[in-house]
Design a protein around this nucleic acid. Sequence first.
RNA 1: GCGCCUGUGGUGAAGGGGUUAUCACCUGAGGUUUCCAACCUCAUGUCCUGGGUUCAAAUCCCAGCGGGCGCACCA
Length: 576
Amino acid sequence: MSEEHRLDRLTSLLKRRGVILPSFEIYGGVSGLIDYGPIGARIKRKVTDYWINHWIKQGDIVEIDSPTITPERVLIASGHVGEFNDLMTECKSCSSIYRADHLIGEIHDNPESLGEIEMNKILQDKSIICLNCGKNDWSPTKPMNLMFKTGIGAMKEQRLAYMRPETAQGMFMLFPSLYRHFRQKLPFGAIQIGKGYRNEISPRQGMIRLREFNMAELEYFIDPNNPPLEDLSTNLSLINMIPDPESKFDLNYNITFSNAFNIGLIKHPTVAFFLMKTWNFLVEIGIDKSKIRFREHVSTEMAHYAEECWDCEINGEYGWIECVGIANRTSHDLKSHENISGSKSLTAWRAFTEPRIERKTILSPKTSIIGPIFKEQSGLVIEAIKKLQIDDKFPKNIKLSNGNNVDITSEMTEIKDIETTVSGEWFTPHVIEPAFGIDRIVWHLIDHSYKEVKKEGVEYTIMKFNDNVCPIDAIILPLYEKDGMDKIAFEITRKANSLLGIRVEMDTSKSIGRRYARADEIGVPWTVTVDHTSVDDNTVTIRRRDDQKQIRTTIKQLLDNLMNKTIENMFHEYQS
RNA sequence: GCGCCUGUGGUGAAGGGGUUAUCACCUGAGGUUUCCAACCUCAUGUCCUGGGUUCAAAUCCCAGCGGGCGCACCA
């Protein structure tokens, strides 16, 4: 079959078999919103479950879950209210749309700080011309709101809120609780899977740019002075990496993770580790290794919060698409939340290896003298004296915080040598964040698994999902729906479904060949056929999707191996 | 948001003013068949939505919604 229109055939299949479909179709549909049907939802569930386990098994990472509705102040602190409300202007002559701050970037130092009115003035006064038609005829600017706005409270006095554009803020909000949970020891991480919302101008390319999408993010909190050093030699694959073109590095590398870190291509050890973990995850669920690459952001396209940022891109029908972003967000988020909220609990304690003894010489107020002289003003006087320097000369006239002036003589102070023991310090942890676009990953998983082959000269479709992500583990097929075969098939179906995490279905309609084909089309790795022999001796045949090979085994062995995910091994044993 | 193209059963298509809208596959029911989309019988849609033109609209016109591509946008 020609490679041409492969995307069309794949899209049709996904719709026909209930994998991925447009939402609200009977009302005409809404662009940027999709449904996962019964098969698709199952694939997505398997991918997210695998993702959760992939991180949880690290041992220092926990799952959390927070609201999608987010009060405005949280998103002001995170920078999204500023970043997601760009002023847009339209060229009245040719209808091209531009970000106003980009247009005036050359003549204004800080265009993002401008309001609508100032911006409109600058667009008129200066000769800023349209890049498309060369004219200066701008419409009044309008804020483009990439976040869905909503209000908390049913009546008039609503508190402004937005649907979250990322899940990360939920993890930052829970930092104090996470810090306690992990017994106040860094590093630790929190993951969350959930919906994110962005009111895209023009969603395109199927499920690549959605208005409501599934994200999976990990925030890993570390001590910047003591970043964890993980073993990068557990994966020695050569990885395609494209560094920032403005850096000293060449354009393109095929390099191991550990070498990339050793030569400084990846700057931060934890970023390197998460790049590796990300690659492992993608390959384990079935993304084609040869279609994965890592690309470093150039400093100009870097998100407002990040210091080092790598995209993991996957190649598919839409070209190379960013599916995972791994960013060193430093202390930006926690610091910003500390500033805006006033909370003091967004820091961690770093104990010094040896307590430090600090000796200081200070000017100390002599309260026994000050008290009787200043009476009720004494407190203010003491406060003022503490601010003086050791080398100040007395007598001295100082101003108190209540506005009164008082004279301080040298008898009222003394020079003291003091010794304090400091056993550690408070600091704001840094955050390394891998952020996964689940829908994009599911799409590429399907794209890479979709195989058009020839079977006995006829076009044939197989989804080659592996055990980690296949929507249904096995389909049970009674050869005929009679002579007890249907009963045995039903028994197996029921028993298999009671196994933890195993999902099987039974299919009885139409010829056996057609039922095999239906199973192959949605990527079921094993089909189990109940035939006349089964009725006599409780054996069944298992067919392997990828090569149509069959083996015969007992029902008990089938169930045991299904549960342990070891059916593949049965084929090896059978062959040897 | 702009421009060009586009919308007919579950999927893919034909029909471009005039009887009851056509075909293939798929799906369901029944039959037949001892293992890879076999065969036979039957069943399932009405032309994206709303206006307009006309005696008559799936067909022509307008608007909206959806899809594709290009431009712009894409923390």
